[in-house]
Write a protein that binds this DNA or RNA. Structure first.
Lengths: 225, 225
DNA sequence: TAAGTAGGTAACAATTTCTTCATTATACAT
DNA sequence: ATGTATAATGAAGAAATTGTTACCTACTTA
């Protein structure tokens, strides 16, 4: 599965760095922001998979930020874990009612933080609004079944071909360069020659016809709009 | 759907009553127990659909109770949500690792409690564990009797083989990877090599023919649509 | 206790998939 | 139109994955 992105919002720079260090070590991608307002901007731009949100911050505090996020269609389904120094019951209840998904009091142990994050992600992940079925042109690309259908024909593509097709198709119209494709489909620390992508594209075309994936010379490939 | 039963295990009588009140209001049937040992007895007798389990309790604490439940064939697939007091960090981590399906820290808002319960149930419910008799293709897979029929032929598969077949068949078409199969069929914190799945698949194919379970290389297995 | 059953592991053979590389074709700029 | 960079193609070998068999252990039953 692709690397999960976590946005950490806290005004204490030191804590921010510490958390970043630990989360990266666990294989997460980390974004940072120093107050609620900035946090929301970053969230809007990058759509993280989870937000760690400090409650007490200058400019815009965590509770306000949540309220805004929960009203935003793009952000309202992102899970939020609160961080706070106060271990004060009222705040806790309040924050959970406002729509937080969990609550952690500082000081924070790394292990605890990570297990909480994983637990919350699992909770959301399985409720799942991950899109596993694409319908584009006359194709139906079903990731649950690892099958591509066109009318009554079914194509069983090998894994890499399927995943490449799925990735391109889920970003219809957008040109993806080879390196990006390798990173997203093959994985981040894999080393293969980027021409490998060409070969897989060719195989997909061989099976499905060459009118789905377009070549953009000098740039990469694109799934036809 | 029939009324779902929830077993609540906690040594604080007040909290027990409060939770009972709220869950009943939501239409659940509620069972109560005051310690782990009692909890397990009740669970064995009534097979609840979900267990809410306090971690700190006299006699037998929640962690012990889970370990026992996860080893009991009748109980190991019942979802468990832990209740923990905020103060106790270490047990929290431990509980996640022991294979709870969620955890909730006290105090918690009622709404949150109910929505978590529903979420976990949905997660497990989708599995179609309610249905005990599947008819797929020319097979009739009967979980009450652990027997597979095809026409007049009856096949008596060993337990694991049967459960694997049943699980795959109840998710017809969907590719399941080995790890998921192990988690769902063998149990959450069982340690076996994932290739074990292959061997069981082979045995099933040997008995029923190899046109039911399909291999998706690099991904997992799938029951033929 | 022996024999039988079930479940798990390990080894290696069989197969499929992936990657690379050399060659040929194509698009694009000048 | 021509040269150059880039992509398509074909084919071989490497790598990865699965199938298959044999064997081990634990447990049950005669």
């Amino acid at each position: 599965m692709a690397k999960k992105t976590i946005l950490v919002v806290d005004d204490e720079q030191d804590l921010l760095d510490l958390i970043e260090y630990n989360l990266k070590k666990e294989g997460f991608k980390v974004l940072k922001a120093e107050n609620g307002q900035e946090g929301i901007e970053v969230a809007k731009e990058h759509k993280p998979d989870l937000v760690l949100l400090d409650i007490m911050m200058p400019k815009m505090d965590g509770l306000e930020a949540v309220e805004i996020m929960r009203k935003d269609d793009d952000l309202k389904r992102i899970p939020i874990i609160f961080l706070t120094a106060r271990s004060d019951e009222n705040t806790e209840i309040e924050s959970l009612n406002k729509g937080g998904d969990d609550f952690i009091t500082k000081p924070i142990s790394t292990t605890k933080l990570v297990s909480r994050i994983k637990a919350v992600m699992r909770r959301f992940g399985e409720a799942g609004d991950t899109l596993n079925k694409l319908e584009v042109h006359d194709l139906e690309i079903d990731k649950d079944r690892y099958i591509v259908k066109r009318g009554d024909d079914e194509f069983q593509l090998p894994r890499k071909e399927f995943e490449l097709l799925f990735f391109l198709a889920s970003r219809r119209g957008k040109v993806m360069d080879r390196q990006t494709l390798l990173n997203k489909v093959w994985g981040d620390n894999i080393y293969v020659v980027d021409r490998t992508v060409d070969v897989h594209v060719r195989k997909i075309r061989e099976k499905l016809g060459d009118h789905y994936i377009e070549t953009v010379k000098g740039v990469g490939y694109r799934f036809k709009e």
